[in-house]
């Protein structure tokens, strides 16, 4: 089998770019912790409210600037439906589902993860600007899917 010289140049460039992409992604994930949301914790999806932390859904302060938000996604809303944090806060979202698959998505941020029943997923975000942030579900979950939303109020 014979590769044309130009094809060698092209494949070297192409494969080289792919290797660079993978290296950048791998280093930023495994060395700098920018991992995709892959939380391994599990719950009983038919009894999510029986055990901590989802027996008391809501916001909990962890330290001066860090909060943990325990949220239950369900058709077709989130519980709680609204949370409020001061600007500059880092919020760690722990979300599970009490019925079907949903997502927890904040447009214009990297918080965009799947919420599968039986599992807890999580992501963290620092809110550096005040305002009202929309949270929506972008995984089809039934006839009322497009009504599923909540808000995060980031206040001065």
């Amino acid at each position: 089998m014979h590769l044309h010289r130009y094809e060698k140049i092209w494949l070297t460039f192409g494969i080289g770019s792919l290797v660079i992409f993978l290296t950048v992604l791998g280093v930023s994930a495994f060395a700098f912790g920018q991992q995709p949301p892959s939380h391994m914790a599990k719950v009983d999806p038919q009894n999510v409210r029986d055990a901590a932390p989802f027996d008391e859904p809501g916001l909990r302060q962890i330290n001066e600037t860090t909060y943990q938000a325990n949220i239950i996604a369900m058709a077709f809303t989130y519980q709680p439906n609204k949370i409020e944090v001061p600007v500059g806060s880092t919020v760690r979202f722990h979300v599970t589902s009490s019925d079907v698959v949903h997502s927890f998505t904040i447009p214009n941020t990297n918080v965009n993860f799947m919420v599968t029943p039986g599992h807890i997923n999580m992501a963290e975000h620092t809110f550096t600007e005040a305002g009202s942030y929309l949270v929506l579900c972008n995984e089809y979950c039934g006839t009322g899917h497009h009504y599923m939303q909540m808000t995060i109020e980031v206040v001065e």
């Binding site: 044309h4 010289r5 130009y6 140049i9 092209w10 460039f13 192409g14 770019s17």
Partner: peptide
């Protein structure tokens, strides 16, 4: 398949890259 005959292909693929 002399090199000159695939110059356009090289340019095209490299622009894709």
């Amino acid at each position: 398949t002399n090199s000159s005959s695939l110059k356009g292909t090289l340019i095209f693929t490299m622009s894709i890259g």
